[in-house]
Nucleic acid binder design. Structure first.
Length: 283
DNA sequence: ATGGGGGCCTGCCGGC
DNA sequence: TGCCGGCAGGCCCCCA
């Protein structure tokens, strides 16, 4: 679920609830997610004011007064639910706690933010704001795909000489940060590039098209998530699940949507992950 | 350095 | 109905 567009959508949903408000109390229901929580996490968060929310790759960074930043990763199954809250956005009462509610934040003004993650591949850490980029989880990330430093010349250099399939290269977070299995499949479809093609063997023109495809597919998904969030909010306040329509992901056996193409979407396994593509129009 | 595979967890779905 | 295998959108780590 949570690739860059979903994380950005969650960030945008949380920002008006958290920014400028204090964290009154934090309940930590287990010692760890993927890794142990930092020492005294609840005590260090209580009373802090959230200055703002940033996103880096698939990480949400909540900058707090006092010079620390809360880092949150949703892993594969992480969700954030909001209940209560100011301004009447969440008029219902707080729902009963559920299985896998691992961390619960009570926010000034009455909102409650709950982190739920059945598989516990998510993560939470607290770090010095000034050294955030040096955090081990962030230090080796490549450029943001929607940022100015991700462009054809960069991607050409990053993929040069790589014998790995382009699918695997785009999932490598040190090459470009924030893409996951779904949006790599979708971007390659839009760029008409086979996921099996060697990363270092893509022409300049097609790499340029790939950069555009990556940026557009992410921007489209964020726009869709944003409008979903604005117009519709589940009664339990869950952020981050939206209706997506994918062109190839999950469409094995279905007809290719490219005009004039009579191909069928195939599924192959690369590096242990499913790749969906049309072998007729992706080369 | 690069690339491939295993492992972490739980939930769900399809087949028998 | 119950059990079992396979699958899942992430990411670190180890090994060749």
């Amino acid at each position: 679920m949570p690739e860059l567009p979903e994380v950005e959508t969650v960030r945008r949903g949380l920002e008006p609830i958290l920014a400028g408000r204090r964290i009154l109390r934090v309940q930590v229901n287990r010692p760890d997610l993927r890794w142990p929580f930092p020492p005294r996490l609840a005590e260090r968060l209580a009373g802090r004011r959230v200055k703002g929310l940033r996103r880096r790759s698939k990480y949400i960074l909540a900058d707090l007064d006092g010079g620390e930043t809360l880092l949150v990763h949703l892993g594969m199954s992480g969700r954030i639910l909001v209940s209560g809250g100011p301004l009447g956005q969440f008029v219902h009462d707080h729902p009963a706690p559920e299985r896998h509610d691992h961390v619960v934040f009570d926010i000034e003004g009455g909102a409650r933010v709950t982190f739920n993650d059945p598989r516990r591949f998510g993560a939470m850490d607290l770090l010095a704001t000034a050294a955030a980029e040096a955090h081990p989880l962030l230090a080796r990330l490549g450029p943001e795909p929607l940022g100015n430093s991700f462009h054809e010349a960069y991607l050409t250099a990053a993929l040069k000489g790589r014998g790995t399939p382009v699918k695997a290269a785009l999932l490598d977070q040190s090459i470009v940060a924030g893409l996951g299995n779904i949006y790599v499949c979708e971007a390659l479809y839009r760029a008409r590039i086979s996921p099996r093609r060697r990363a270092g063997a893509i022409s300049a023109a097609r790499l340029a098209a790939l950069v555009v495809a990556i940026r557009n597919v992410l921007a489209d998904a964020i726009a869709a998530g944003g409008s979903s969030l604005r117009d519709y909010r589940r009664a339990d306040g869950e952020l981050g699940y939206f209706q997506h329509s994918f062109d190839v992901y999950g469409r094995e056996g279905a007809p290719c949507r490219t005009a004039g193409c009579d191909g069928t979407v195939r599924r192959v396994v690369q590096a242990g992950r499913s790749s969906f593509y049309c072998a007729s129009c992706q080369r």
